[in-house]
Design a protein around this nucleic acid. Structure first.
Length: 695
DNA sequence: TTGTGGTGT
């Protein structure tokens, strides 16, 4: 159009906005448009939205489809000029889209594609990696020149196949040793990825082993042969345990077509499918939309932030299961991000702050709590590092050396504190490339983390959250991290394994964690990863007292004071404290006393159901547990509109706590006012205060 | 005693 970029035609992506008031045509990513929808749900700025690559059905695409449809309807109702939508999709399943948009007309545009000959395996392959290797060598020796692209599932598989190819080549006749094997996957450093674009000399042919990155994201020139394993690693979500896993699964027919298409871009090609025609017929037409196989907390927070309060009836093109929706809503209620009124959900002050930050709710919760804990600087640093792919570079041929070098960053406090150490060293080294290489650190990922940190910092300032550092107080950092990860706590069992507190799942510390080999009583993890076992990735330790208060304190209110009972702290007696209002939040302050004088005020973070289940669990096997049978009737004593934020100013481990304090005889508080609480059934146990005396 | 596909705010 002969205009300068950023004037009539512009674009807007995460870190860059190249548009101006003159802009008429704007290219943007789905996520950027969704962000805009929070402040402008009717998308007033736009007359026409063209949504490309809709068949990929990412979470963002699906969410956007719903948001656009809703905006269309509201604009019609309010007599605002119509919002026109064009959905572009490389799929035969256009009916689904058409139906969703009230039977919108469908136009077909013929794509250009050279002929592709399709070859199916005659019999089922039990070992697709081996089958792929045999196929590669058959193509290399029997077929005309042209490069080969092999679709595989992941880094480990790819590296192992490349090793096999390199071991096999020397066994071939000397004149046919002109094959070069190259890897291609997202975790590969950029410079290595770029090797697939280079044309080889002296008649060498390339065989590229790639993940689904080569399906859509990266187009490699000169591919004549495609070898398709029929497998892909994809995320799935278990609504019972609430955790996401990555599993190797069969691809869909649509994906198979996409892979085959990579062979016919510049010339006619051949696609070798390492599965039978019958197996192919069993494939699903399309992959399950991602929105149906991920944790929905972020999606729902977004929907509510856009002002769609009736989330249970949100018009998803493919609706996620009710269980998934409900468990995500619970999580958000726990974080104090949303509140429910007659099946409608509304954003709270906390939620309004959380939604500003482009990270998952479990992370934005930490940023919001970091304000009162005074460790925002460290929290956003850690979150930036968690927002990028692994920053540790461990090449398969230098594994031992890389692991050895990484040891110097290890922290006994856990992996997140280790991340912080790496980042600080990187900054001290002035983001030096050589430093990264020597320390086996992914420079691109660290640089991206730096950009993200900048963005989070700017947003913090906008949200009036000062970038305060806790300096060397890592304890307060771990506490703050815990407020977002309360769902991810696990405890040590007698046999040395761990159990998650929430779901009672058996889990293990991942061998790459710096806590591997140590046996902390309590642990908080970032994610569960299901591979050979169910591993906790990225762990850190937490103090016993902290975790007990975190998961097991239930309270009575009497005026502005409260008293709670933590069964595992029976030797200490009930804990008590007072309430305070801070910002839009209810704060619960725990007081540690000496001779009836408060000597320390500590934190807790509370939630509803989960907390209570924990309470119940801790009572198991205890005769006192009997009164808890009618647990369903229990009403939360706190104002349900707020999650209750326990704000500790200092936390000690349980042992530490116990060593320092002994206790007076319990005395009954005089201003007692009773509430419905299961503890009432203990009769005499309610509302006692215990004073701690220093030994 | 082991490691995780791809997007994106």
């Amino acid at each position: 159009m002969n205009t300068e970029l950023g004037t009539v035609v512009g674009y807007s992506v995460r870190f860059e906005d190249m548009t101006s008031s003159q802009t008429k045509i704007k290219y943007l990513t789905d996520g950027t448009l969704l962000r805009e929808a929070i402040s402008d749900p009717l998308l007033h700025k736009y007359k026409v939205i063209i949504l490309d690559e809709a068949h990929e059905r990412t979470v963002q695409t699906d969410l956007l489809l719903g948001v656009i449809k809703k905006a269309q309807r509201l604009r019609n109702q309010q007599h605002i000029p119509v919002l026109k939508v064009i959905i572009m999709s490389a799929t035969i399943d256009c009916d689904h889209f058409s139906q969703y948009f009230n039977k919108a007309p469908v136009y077909y545009i013929r794509g250009r594609q050279h002929d592709i000959q399709m070859m199916y395996s005659k019999e089922k392959q039990s070992d697709y990696m081996n089958a792929a290797l045999i196929t590669v060598f058959q193509i290399y020796q029997n077929q005309d020149e042209g490069d080969i692209l092999v679709f595989s599932t992941g880094e480990e598989e790819i590296e192992s196949m490349i090793r096999s190819v390199n071991e096999t080549i020397p066994l071939l006749p000397l004149e046919s040793q002109k094959l070069k094997a190259l890897p291609l996957y997202a975790a590969l450093p950029l410079s290595h990825q770029q090797r697939v674009f280079k044309t080889l000399e002296n008649g060498f042919r390339k065989v590229i082993f790639a993940t689904n990155i080569a399906e859509t994201s990266i187009t490699i020139p000169n591919i004549k042969y495609v070898v398709d394993s029929g497998k892909v690693k994809s995320r799935s979500y278990n609504s019972v345990t609430g955790f996401e896993t990555l599993k190797v699964q069969s691809i869909s027919k649509a994906q198979a077509a996409q892979r085959a298409g990579r062979a016919g871009r510049e010339m006619s090609g051949i696609c070798y499918r390492l599965y039978t025609k019958e197996e192919y017929n069993e494939f699903r037409d399309h992959a399950i939309p991602e929105i149906q196989r991920c944790n929905l907390a972020n999606v729902l927070l977004h929907i509510i932030a856009i002002g769609i309060n009736d989330v249970l009836n949100f018009d998803f093109m493919d609706k996620p299961s009710e269980d998934n929706i409900n468990s995500a809503l619970k999580q958000l209620v726990h974080f104090g991000a949303i509140e429910a009124k007659q099946e409608l959900y509304y954003l709270t002050d906390v939620g309004t702050l959380m939604v500003i930050f482009p990270v998952e709710p479990k992370f934005s919760k930490m940023i919001v709590t970091s304000k009162s804990m005074g460790c925002t600087e460290e929290i956003i640093t850690i979150l930036s590092l968690l927002s990028v792919d692994n920053i540790y570079y461990i090449p398969s041929n230098q594994k031992d050396m890389a692991n050895e070098v990484h040891k110097k960053f290890i922290s006994s406090e856990g992996d997140l504190i280790k991340l912080l150490k790496v980042y600080r060293n990187f900054k001290t080294a002035k983001e030096n490339k050589k430093w990264c290489k020597e320390n086996f650190i992914h420079i691109n990922n660290l640089k991206l983390a730096t950009d993200i940190k900048k963005q989070l910092s700017d947003l913090c300032l906008k949200a009036s959250i000062p970038l305060v550092s806790s300096n060397n107080n890592t304890e307060v950092i771990r506490k703050c991290l815990s407020t977002g990860l309360v769902f991810n706590t696990a405890y040590l069992q007698k046999d040395g394994t761990y159990k998650t507190r929430l779901t009672k799942q058996e889990v293990y510390i991942h061998p790459s964690s710096c806590l591997f080999g140590t046996k902390p009583e309590n642990i908080i993890f970032n994610e569960l990863v299901q591979t050979s076992k169910c591993y906790m990735s990225i762990d850190f330790r937490i103090g016993e007292l902290f975790v007990l208060l975190l998961v097991s304190t239930r309270c009575h209110r009497f005026g502005s004071r409260w008293s709670g009972f933590s069964p595992a702290l029976q030797c200490v007696g009930p804990v008590s404290g007072r309430f305070a209002r801070s910002g839009g939040c209810l704060e619960v302050i725990v007081e540690i006393k000496q001779q009836r004088r408060v000597v320390r005020q500590d934190i807790v973070d509370i939630n509803g159901d989960i907390l209570f289940r924990e309470f119940e669990g801790l009572f198991a096997g205890n005769p006192l547990a009997q009164p808890f049978e009618d647990i369903e009737d229990f009403a939360h004593p706190f104002d349900s509109r707020n999650s209750v934020n326990f704000t500790f100013d200092r936390i000690h481990g349980f042992n530490d706590f116990h060593d320092r304090y002994t206790f007076d005889e319990p005395t009954v508080a005089d201003d007692t006012q009773q509430f419905d609480h299961p503890l009432d059934q203990f009769g005499s146990l309610v509302v006692v205060e215990v004073a701690a005396i220093k030994r």
